[in-house]
């Protein structure tokens, strides 16, 4: 990056040596990110498929077992994530308009929302664990006095797998957004060079989007 930039003074510092123009670099990064987003959606689609097959096999069981999930906690988390998606979009806009202060502020709010999401998740998980509403071999809800149909353990298996993998994505998102925040503090982004912010935003929206589907499918089964 650096050696070539010295040879051609007209090359901005952030333009990698193997690209000809900033536009080429930006559109490449964006296309790459969208492809990555496709892989994420496809990966979760496997889990959604498993969910639908389970529901098709045991519709009554899923209906009863899902009643034990905390709709309020899920609802709060949905609002929190939607808010964070909104602030993320504002952050990208701020980067595009050279408003570094607003970028930093919006990133912080987004990161804070991600933490709130994980905290709520923590309380949800601990309740489930205490009541033995656990996957497969660890399922002991019946000893805790629950009247749940046969195979409920598979539902909790799916529940923990799906929300767990999603939670891992939220944690990764916190890391990515913090890294973007550090770079924003170094004033790296401007209206010419904001594709990293935008890509982090795409990632965050994907995480949000997955939750938008998870919430009704797991919590609001009718």
């Amino acid at each position: 990056m650096s050696s070539n930039a010295q040879e051609h003074e007209d090359r901005p510092w952030f333009l990698a040596h193997h690209f000809d123009t900033v536009g080429q670099q930006m559109s490449s990064a964006k296309l790459g990110m969208w492809l990555f987003a496709c892989t994420e959606v496809l990966m979760f689609s496997g889990l959604f498929l498993a969910y639908f097959i389970l529901r098709d096999l045991y519709p009554e069981m899923v209906l009863v077992a899902s009643e034990e999930l905390n709709k309020t906690a899920g609802g709060v988390n949905t609002v929190v994530l939607l808010t964070s998606s909104f602030t993320m979009a504002l952050g990208v806009r701020a980067a595009q308009t050279n408003n570094n202060k607003a970028l930093k502020r919006n990133l912080l709010v987004t990161i804070a929302c991600a933490f709130i999401f994980m905290i709520v998740k923590y309380f949800e998980y601990t309740t489930k664990i205490e009541h033995g509403l656990l996957p497969g071999a660890w399922f002991s809800a019946l000893e805790h006095g629950y009247m749940l149909p046969k195979y409920s353990r598979v539902f909790y298996g799916i529940y923990f797998t799906m929300t767990g993998l999603h939670g891992v994505h939220v944690i990764v998102g916190i890391g990515v957004l913090s890294w973007i925040y550090i770079r924003a503090r170094r004033h790296e982004f401007n209206s010419e060079n904001y594709v990293a912010v935008e890509n982090a935003g795409i990632y965050w929206h994907i995480v949000d989007l997955v939750w938008i589907f998870l919430f009704p499918l797991l919590y609001l089964v009718k």
Partner: peptide, 13 residues
């Protein structure tokens, strides 16, 4: 975790 998604004994396929 013996989730049971692929295990017929636990209701999986």
């Amino acid at each position: 975790l013996s989730v049971g998604i692929f295990d017929p004994a636990m209701g999986g396929d």
